[in-house]
Simulated scan of single mutants.
Amino acid sequence: MADKFLHVHDGDLGYVPRPGVRGTVRDGGPVTIEANGFRFSGEKPASADTPILAVGDSFTYGEDVADLDAWPAQLQRLTGRTVLNGGVSGYGLDQIVLRTERLTALHGLALVIVGMIANDVQRTEMRRMWWHDKPWFALQGGKLVLRGVPVPERTKPPTEVRRRMERRAGTGARISRALIERLSSLQTVNRVKLVLVAQYDAYAWSGRRQAQEQRNVLRPLLECAALHGIATLDTFHRLAAEPRPGDFYGTLHMNARGNLMIASLLAARLRTWSS
């Protein structure tokens, strides 16, 4: 998760994929970060349609699967449209929104798919994760205020800094709703269509309580997104319909089969979102 070998420090986001780096996952499959900082999704199709941007955490990036097995790469194959994989392992919703804003401003896009899991909400309460300092938001008068930037570059903060890296428990839900509202402004400012996709980690299928906990976190954000004109996709019901949802996962993250399921759900809705 957020392996320093695959990442480079970024003053606005904490860290981003290291351009041009190559590695492998546990089974030997390739991990390739292109010169533009996106994970490799295969050779670009000949389609004249504008690229689709996928942004999110490790479930969008495709942790533990090879380049072409991540769902953005599989969506590219299914649709024949270029899909830019801008996912970054370990990101919270705060970093996801900031990266979406950056990439949307840099690339001519018509559709942006934002993926998230329940744990991304808790990560908005953190000032440091995965060996990295990170940006974070506070709420002042109901307004989001960005803190922690420029993000300092250091491998291990001094003791007095570590003591200030406390988790602001209980603030994640409110901050995340405000982040969804902020995200929605991209549809008018940058004239792109936004889609929020709720994914679930493997723990969701270990018991009814675990599934309900993740749904209780994600459902209000999906409702908030819909209220602000963002299209939504909740992948829970499709997985819950399987007799053994765990077959779509490796350890915590989705395997190639699970990523294909997500890509197929997105491909089936693509025409509706693009119209």
Rank of each mutant, 00 (worst) to 15 (best):
M129L: 14
D120R: 12
A66P: 07
D69A: 07
N36I: 02
A118V: 10
K134H: 02
G87M: 09
G141F: 11
H107L: 14
D94R: 06
D49F: 10
A105F: 09
P51V: 07
V97E: 06
R128Q: 13
V112K: 05
A73K: 00
V121W: 09
L144Q: 11
A138T: 14
A54S: 08
G62T: 04
M129S: 14
T104W: 12
A54W: 02
Q76L: 09
V97S: 04
Q74G: 05
G90W: 05
G42R: 04
W131D: 15
G80R: 08
A66K: 14
I117F: 06
A138I: 09
D67S: 05
R147G: 13
I96T: 15
S47T: 00
W131L: 15
N119D: 15
V97W: 10
M116C: 09
A35K: 13
M126L: 14
E101Y: 03
G92C: 02
L109W: 01
L111N: 11
A66C: 11
G80A: 09
T82N: 07
Q122Y: 15
W131C: 14
F137H: 11
L103F: 08
L139I: 14
K44C: 03
Q95V: 00
Q74H: 05
V65D: 07
A110G: 15
F59K: 06
E125A: 12
D120G: 08
P51Y: 09
G37I: 04
P152D: 12
M129K: 11
Q140N: 14
R81V: 06
R77H: 08
R81S: 04
L109T: 07
D64V: 12
D69S: 05
L139F: 03
P152V: 10
K143W: 07
Y91D: 13
L75N: 00
S47R: 00
G142A: 12
E34R: 13
P51A: 12
L93N: 01
A73C: 10
Q74F: 02
L78P: 09
T79H: 10
